[in-house]
Structure formats: structure tokens, C-alpha cells
């Protein structure tokens, strides 16, 4: 799995105590993993810092699954 996925997974496990086995590219962050809007902003904050990218606020609603987040960041990184 990609470095971005591993980082997002670590955030979800460490910050939110989400069971690692539930985390895959298709998992909906709010509905499947029990996050709320504050968690999403917190995760975005950490991702932006780690990968030196900016995720504009108007993109948040498109980031529903773990895969949405990973793909968005990887696109930004030009992979």
C-alpha cells in the first residue's frame, strides 16, 4: 500500500482508536469509521503538514472514503 494510505491509516488508528481491520480504501470515514467533521479537519491538518500539500475546504465534501483522501493527496503529489 502507498505511503499516503499508511499515513492516513496511522492517523485513524492513533487519533481515533479505529480498529485497523476496518480501514480500507472503500471505508467511508464518517459512516463506516465513526468520525465527525472535526476529525476530518484534524486529519486534513495532519496530512497537509506531513505531505506539504493544501486541501481546500471546498474539497472536504468530496473526501468521503479513505480512498478519496489518499487519491486526492497522491494526485496533488503528482504520482
Amino acid at each position: 500500500m502507498s505511503k499516503v494510505f499508511e499515513f492516513v491509516k496511522t492517523l485513524l488508528v492513533e487519533n481515533m482508536q479505529i480498529d485497523e481491520s476496518k480501514i480500507n480504501m472503500d471505508a467511508n470515514i464518517i459512516e463506516d469509521l465513526g468520525a465527525d467533521s472535526l476529525d476530518i479537519m484534524d486529519i486534513v491538518n495532519d496530512i497537509e503538514k506531513e505531505f506539504n500539500v493544501t486541501i481546500p475546504q471546498d474539497q472536504y465534501e468530496n473526501l468521503r472514503t479513505v480512498g478519496d483522501v489518499v487519491n486526492f493527496v497522491e494526485d496533488k503529489l503528482g504520482k
Binding site: 472535526l38 484534524d42 491538518n45 497537509e48 503538514k49
Partner: peptide
């Protein structure tokens, strides 16, 4: 300011 945590206020 962009790095201030969303949890700061609450």
C-alpha cells in the same frame, strides 16, 4: 493560522 487545530476552540 492555517495550522491551528480545529479542536482549539472546543
Amino acid at each position: 493560522g492555517d495550522r491551528v487545530s480545529p479542536f482549539f476552540v472546543p
